[in-house]
């Protein structure tokens, strides 16, 4: 039996890594005495499979985890999918909240391979709203957007453009930018994850590249010395949705949650976070 969980990661805990989160889950599962299946072999591990890694520092409303349960023990003890999210959430550290648990089919393709794109909302500093809007339209209009990306420890040139599926500055009336200071500009994007996942920091590099700046800068997108003042820098990032696209339908990774392509669940989700 395989269960897929959807959970959020919000607040201070965003500074922990994907690996840290995996360990938090393992401890919570042991505390809950879940009838989890273990890998075979000399050093058995719980059978957990996490989806696409979330960068350390980013928040998320849409993280997924697949868990295999031991059918023998499930038959004995039973598992209640309705109460499970709440029961496990209290055992997880503050900031990790499980929203749903559903049973899914066993699949040869991992969750990570199935997801085709992610929606993100970002708070950006360093540029005005108009400047960011201009950079975004330049990027969308460009045929190619070459940026330096790290691959296997080496920096190489890659075209960002095909990976940017949607990009827009958030409307001023949107409740999206939860920043009372008004210091930041909101940005919404859908970034493809195939063949390689694009990170929001890499999107920043793309924006810099199309606006004539150099894209050679530190990984976190912080401006290097002497850079122009129009450098967008990420202040806060949230993954709002992960998508599996199949035959023109975008589907949320929990079964039975099919929505037509283009529907803006991302905006909706961000409102909930506010």
């Amino acid at each position: 039996m395989r269960i897929r969980f959807r959970y959020s990661k919000l607040g201070k805990i965003r500074f922990t890594s994907q690996r840290d989160v995996a360990r938090m889950w393992e401890r919570a599962i042991r505390r809950a005495h879940l009838p989890i299946a273990y890998t075979e072999g000399f050093s058995p591990r719980p059978q957990l499979s996490f989806g696409l890694a979330l960068p350390t520092g980013a928040e998320s409303l849409s993280e997924y985890l697949d868990m295999a349960l031991d059918p023998m023990r499930v038959a004995e003890d039973g598992v209640d999918l309705d109460s499970l999210p709440a029961e496990l959430t209290v055992l997880l550290p503050e900031g990790l909240d499980i929203e749903e648990a559903v049973e899914v089919e066993r699949s040869k393709v991992s969750l990570q391979q199935m997801v085709t794109s992610c929606s993100w909302t970002m708070r950006v500093v360093g540029v005005s709203r108009d400047e960011l809007a201009e950079q975004a339209s330049l990027l969308l209009a460009a045929d190619t957007v070459p940026i330096m990306r790290e691959r296997k420890g080496r920096e190489e040139m890659d075209d960002l453009r095909p990976s940017v599926l949607a990009l827009a500055v958030a409307d001023a009336s949107d409740n999206l930018v939860i920043d009372p200071s008004g210091r930041t500009v909101g940005l919404v994007a859908e970034l493809s994850t195939q063949p390689r996942g694009v990170r929001p920091t890499e999107l920043m590099r793309g924006l810099i590249a199309v606006s004539g700046g150099s894209s050679a800068r530190s990984i976190d997108g912080a401006p290097t010395e002497g850079a122009s003042s129009r450098i967008p820098v990420l202040d806060r990032v949230c993954r709002t949705q992960q998508w599996i696209e199949c035959d023109g339908l975008r589907q949320e990774p929990l079964l039975g949650r099919v929505v037509p392509a283009g529907a803006d669940l991302a905006m909706h989700a961000m409102e909930r976070a506010s």
């Binding site: 201070k12 805990i13 500074f15 922990t16 350390t56 520092g57 550290p93 990420l234």
Partner: peptide
């Protein structure tokens, strides 16, 4: 400050 440093979770507390 935490966006600029290595292992930012060292500074957030939140232990069980």
């Amino acid at each position: 400050l935490l966006a600029q440093v290595t292992k930012p979770a060292r500074y957030i507390g939140g232990e069980l």
